[in-house]
Amino acid sequence: MNLYNLKKEILNGYQLSKNEAIQLVDEDLNLLCKFANEIREHFCGSQFDICTIINAKSGRCSEDCKYCAQSVHYKTVCTEYPLLSSDIIKKEAIRNAKQGVMRYSMVTSGKNVTDAEIDTICDIAENMRDVPIKLCGSFGLLKRAQYEKLYHAGLTRMHNNLETSQRNFPNMCSTHSFEDKIASINEAKSVGMYICSGAIIGIGETFEDRIDLAFSLRELNVQSVPINMLNPVKGTPYETLDKITEEDFRKTVALFRFILPTAYLRLAGGRGLMSDSGYSLFRCGANATITGDMLTTAGISMEEDIQKIKEMGFHF
Rank of each mutant, 00 (worst) to 15 (best):
residue 220 L to N: 02
residue 237 P to N: 11
residue 237 P to C: 07
residue 262 T to G: 05
residue 286 A to W: 04
residue 230 L to N: 04
residue 235 G to K: 10
residue 224 S to T: 13
residue 221 N to I: 06
residue 232 P to V: 10
residue 228 N to S: 08
residue 270 G to P: 02
residue 245 T to P: 03
residue 232 P to E: 09
residue 247 E to V: 01
residue 258 F to C: 02
residue 269 G to V: 13
residue 257 R to P: 02
residue 265 L to Y: 09
residue 259 I to Q: 01
residue 281 L to E: 03
residue 290 I to R: 01
residue 284 C to K: 00
residue 242 D to W: 00
residue 280 S to T: 13
residue 274 M to Q: 13
residue 273 L to M: 13
residue 219 E to F: 10
residue 266 R to Q: 14
residue 287 N to K: 12
residue 228 N to V: 08
residue 252 T to C: 13
residue 242 D to F: 03
residue 266 R to G: 01
residue 229 M to G: 04
residue 267 L to P: 04
residue 287 N to V: 06
residue 260 L to E: 12
residue 268 A to F: 09
residue 277 S to E: 15
residue 260 L to M: 15
residue 274 M to P: 05
residue 227 I to L: 15
residue 272 G to S: 13
residue 255 L to G: 00
residue 251 K to V: 07
residue 276 D to S: 12
residue 289 T to K: 14
residue 248 D to I: 00
residue 288 A to T: 06
residue 247 E to W: 00
residue 242 D to A: 14
residue 227 I to Q: 02
residue 271 R to V: 09
residue 246 E to N: 11
residue 245 T to L: 02
residue 285 G to V: 14
residue 269 G to L: 13
residue 266 R to P: 09
residue 243 K to E: 08
residue 262 T to M: 14
residue 256 F to I: 08
residue 247 E to T: 07
residue 254 A to N: 10
residue 248 D to C: 04
residue 288 A to L: 11
residue 261 P to F: 13
residue 227 I to W: 01
residue 270 G to C: 09
residue 287 N to I: 06
